[in-house]
Amino acid sequence: MKFAPFDYVCTRSLAEVYDLIEARGPDARILAGGQSLLTTLALRLSEPSVLLDIGGLQELRFIEERNGAIHVGALTRHCELETSPLIAARLPLIAQAMPHVAHAAIRNRGTIGGSLSLADPAAELPACMLALDAAIVLASRDGERRVRAEAFFKGLYHTDVRPGELLVRVEITPLEKEWRFHFAEFSRRRGDYAMVGLAAAARGPGPLPEELRLAFLGCGDRPVRAREAERVASGSASAPRAERYSALRRALEKDLEPQSDPNASSETRMHLAAVLADRAIEALSG
C-alpha cells in the first residue's frame, strides 16, 4: 500500500540529526537503508511525521580494525558485511550469517545500524551481536555510551536507545584463535525470517568445546543466550545424539520462551532449537 504522507529531511551531519531528533520529537524516524522502516510504513504499521535520512553520512559507513577491535559503522550495508575480507577473517560468524539475511536486493541497501535498532527478534545480526558480546555504541549531543549487546536488546522491537540517541557503530573484539563458529537457521523459504536460528561459538583445541555460547533468534521477544543449554552442552558433547538432544531440550525449556505464530507453534520452535543446538555441538566438536 502507499505510504502515508511524511516530511523528509536529508541530513548533512550528526549534529543536524541530534537537533532534528530534539526538534521533531518522537514522531520523527531515522531513515538508514529503509528496508524495514519502509515496509512498516507500507503496511501502515507506523505513520511518522518526518523521516530523517542519514543515508548520506559517509562517516557512518566503514569496517575497520582499531586497537584490536573491529568497528563497524551503522550505515554499513549487509552486502558489505557479506563480502568484507576483514569480516571473513576476523568475525567469521557474521560472514556465515549474512547469506541468511533476506535476499540480495535487500542486502544491497539494508544496514547493520537499522537492523540492530529495529531489534526484530527473528533477525540474524542481533543474535550474532549477542554471541560475539558486541558493544553497541550510541551517540547523542552529550557524547557516546557503550552498551553490551545483552543489555541493548530489551524486548520486542525494544532497545536501550534513549530519546536523542543514534546508534553509530558496533565494536567487536574478535575471540581468540581457538574459537570456532557456526550459524544455522530454519526458515520456510530461503530469505524468509527464520522460525528459529542459532549463532554459536565454541572454544577449545580438544574434541569437546570447553566453552560454548548459544545465541538463539526467533525464540522469544529478543535474541537470547541459552545459558542453561550452554552449561548442559559442555557435559554432553560426547553423549549419544538422542541423549544429547533430550538434555539440550530440557535445558532449552528453561532458557527460551518461543511464541506460536502461523509459521510454527512454540512446541515446534522448541524442537527446532534443540535440533540446531545439537547440530551446532556436532559441528563445533573437533
Partner: peptide
C-alpha cells in the same frame, strides 16, 4: 506486493539490484 516481498519491482541503483518499492525517490539524489 508493494512492501518488499515479491521482487516484481526489482531495479538497479548505482549498479546493484534493489527493491524499488523500498526506496524513496528523494533518497536517490
Amino acid at each position: 506486493c508493494e512492501h518488499g516481498v515479491c521482487g516484481a519491482c526489482t531495479v538497479r541503483v548505482d549498479g546493484d539490484i534493489v527493491r524499488g518499492c523500498l526506496v524513496l525517490a528523494v533518497q536517490l539524489e
